[in-house]
Computed example of a mutant assay.
Amino acid sequence: MALKRMDNVGIVVEDLDAAVAFFLELGLTLEGRATIEGDWSGKVTGLHGQRVEIAMMQTPDGHSRLELSRFLKPATVADHRNAPVNALGYLRVMFAVDDLDETLERLYRLGATLVDEVVNYQDVYRLCYIRGPEGLLIGLAEELG
């Protein structure tokens, strides 16, 4: 049996509304919001008695999703948002954009900061990392030519 697809990447946030607004500005669409709770959900995650508010965001091509989660119960127990890019574990989400400069200008207005600088990779891509809402590490890439 073959792998069919990757359905989504999950990111835990404190301010779900701000995270949704940021990713809407980036160009994702909001598929829906819901509160997830009940015995079944705790059996999946191992956090019995959990209550989580989620927002499912979809990329414009319809192929990828980002699940933003705010834990109401239990409280979050660790914070990896300010880990350097060489830390073990999940690093970042990378998005392809049409116009990197225009995208950065829009995201700066929502508090995004450039990690270091925009670089040209072999005249194929312009790339950068930004810190988005709550310090989330996000990669942006503009294909050249």
Rank of each mutant, 00 (worst) to 15 (best):
K73C: 05
G46W: 11
K43M: 08
F71I: 00
T113K: 12
Y125S: 02
G139A: 07
V93A: 14
A21N: 14
F23C: 09
V115P: 00
E142D: 11
S64P: 00
M6E: 15
D98M: 07
A141H: 02
D101L: 07
I138L: 08
D99F: 08
L24W: 03
A19P: 03
I138G: 05
P60N: 07
A19H: 04
V118F: 05
R109S: 10
E25N: 06
R81K: 15
G10W: 04
L3V: 09
I11G: 06
V93C: 13
D123A: 13
L47P: 00
T35G: 04
H63F: 09
K73P: 00
L110K: 10
V12I: 04
V124S: 06
G32M: 05
Q50H: 11
A2R: 06
L137Y: 04
E53D: 14
K73W: 10
L16A: 07
T59M: 06
L127Q: 06
D39Y: 10
I11T: 05
D7I: 01
L3E: 11
S64K: 11
I54V: 12
V115C: 08
S64N: 14
T45N: 08
E134H: 03
L88Y: 08
S64W: 12
Y108R: 14
P60R: 02
A112N: 04
I54H: 04
L26A: 06
G38R: 11
E53R: 12
S69T: 01
E105P: 02
N82A: 11
M1V: 01
L68V: 02
L68K: 04
G89M: 10
Q122M: 11
V124E: 14
I130L: 08
G32I: 00
V93T: 05
Y125Q: 06
I138Y: 08
E102M: 07
F23H: 11
A34R: 10
L26I: 03
T103D: 13
R131I: 03
S64Q: 14
Y121L: 12
Y108E: 15
F22E: 09
I130T: 02
L26T: 02
R51K: 15
D99Q: 07
V85G: 05
V52N: 10
G111D: 13
D116S: 14
C128Q: 07
L28R: 01
S41T: 02
N120H: 07
L72H: 10
I54N: 05
R126S: 06
C128H: 06
T59I: 00
A96F: 03
K4G: 04
R106M: 10
L26F: 08
A141T: 01
L3Y: 11
D7N: 13
T35R: 14
V124Y: 06
L110H: 14
D61T: 03
C128L: 05
I36K: 09
L137N: 03
D79S: 07
R109M: 09
G62H: 08
M57C: 08
T113L: 12
C128S: 08
R106N: 11
L91Q: 12
G111A: 13
K73F: 12
R70E: 15
N82L: 12
A55P: 00
L47D: 14
D99S: 09
F71W: 15
E25L: 04
T45W: 13
P84S: 13
L127T: 02
D99E: 15
L47Q: 10
G139H: 04
L88N: 10
